[in-house]
Write a protein that binds this DNA or RNA. Structure first.
Lengths: 189, 189
DNA sequence: TGATTTTCTTAAACCAGCTTAATTTTTATT
DNA sequence: AATAAAAATTAAGCTGGTTTAAGAAAATCA
């Protein structure tokens, strides 16, 4: 059961009873997607947060030349959306799309507010998740500004070897901010 | 009074009584700093979150060549620290330093836990703050991967004109990820 | 299994942005 | 007001990484 991935994850941060957890789970929609399905469309109002129970999602945008650029990946137990657009209920600056067959729990803005109101301890859970996510984003910016593209690749592969196996190389290249051609050249070494 | 900047900011997210707010304020240390004072040292355990009541802070690291590189600024009503290191009570990957004469409220890890336990509504406040911070970080990575250095500068100056006036150009250059020399050349145009 | 599409590789020409180093301007200190 | 220190500018030469274009390999599908 996919909702168990979520309730177990929540339980690792906050204590809830079995009953509370199953009530919490009812706030979410569970849905399975094929590879390359869009869950969120850029320019459309961002009304959903996604939790990956199984599979892998990407948050990406389309650049001036029409090439998709991945800004963030999400694998099992990660949350993903355009948080700024979600918070302000504005049009999304990003697409969200599956990179492989995935099972995703999603919650709308209004359900999210209801959930937090009914279970205030969920604030603690999200606070902790977001502390980690923001902290990691600061580290990521540090890497971007201190490593060469070559170092970026080796350092990323060192930290997340499964990831490098799992996503297509051209998607990884766009995430790391280099061209697929140059990534290919780096790997030759 | 500097603590009022904080309590007013909290009040714009969550409702607290006057009494509660003054009790909350007592969890923080208020301190004034001169320009270029260090509040957090890299490699030392990160045990503090900083709230800027007045002035301006930077989060930065020292690169291979010994040059400081700014990863994040914080002005009035912004929170700043190495959140990943703080959460895990590990050594900091960054320095925190004043860019000008500043008044800062700070809270230690243990006081932060106490505060959240005693005032669970503060979880909501921090959750909201971190949603914004993380969302903004995703947007920042989008800009880094889609704009040229020249576009970076003009887009940043367009969004935060006061900032560009307020911080030294070489600090701004390191934040935007370009050299002071190139920034100078860009400005000539 | 063969045909089609998607992904990855190779290589050469090119350029945005860096390095270096010297000079000028601004800011801080006495 | 004079001196010292920090910050900003200018310009030339250079390089890490991109662009372009074509072919090879791998994955998907009928």
């Amino acid at each position: 059961m996919s909702e168990q991935i979520l309730t177990e994850h929540i339980s690792s941060y906050v204590n809830f009873s079995k009953e509370e957890l199953s009530e919490i789970a009812r706030f979410f929609n569970i849905q399975s997607y094929r590879k390359k399905e869009k869950l969120l469309h850029a320019e459309k109002r961002c009304d959903t947060i996604f939790f990956v129970a199984k599979g892998c999602l990407q948050l990406y945008f389309i650049d001036d030349l029409g090439n998709p650029k991945t800004t963030q990946f999400a694998m099992e137990t990660w949350w993903l959306t355009d948080f700024l657009a979600f918070q302000n209920q504005r049009p999304s600056n990003f697409y969200v799309e599956t990179l492989e067959k995935s099972t995703v729990l999603s919650i709308s803005f209004s359900k999210y507010q209801e959930l937090l109101e009914k279970f205030p301890k969920m604030e603690k859970y999200y606070r902790a998740i977001l502390e980690t996510a923001y902290g990691a984003a600061l580290m990521r910016i540090k890497y971007i500004h201190s490593l060469s593209k070559e170092e970026m690749f080796f350092s990323f592969r060192n930290s997340f070897p499964e990831f490098v196996q799992r996503v297509p190389q051209y998607v990884l290249a766009s995430f790391l901010g280099l061209t697929p051609e140059y990534l290919s050249e780096i790997k030759k070494k």
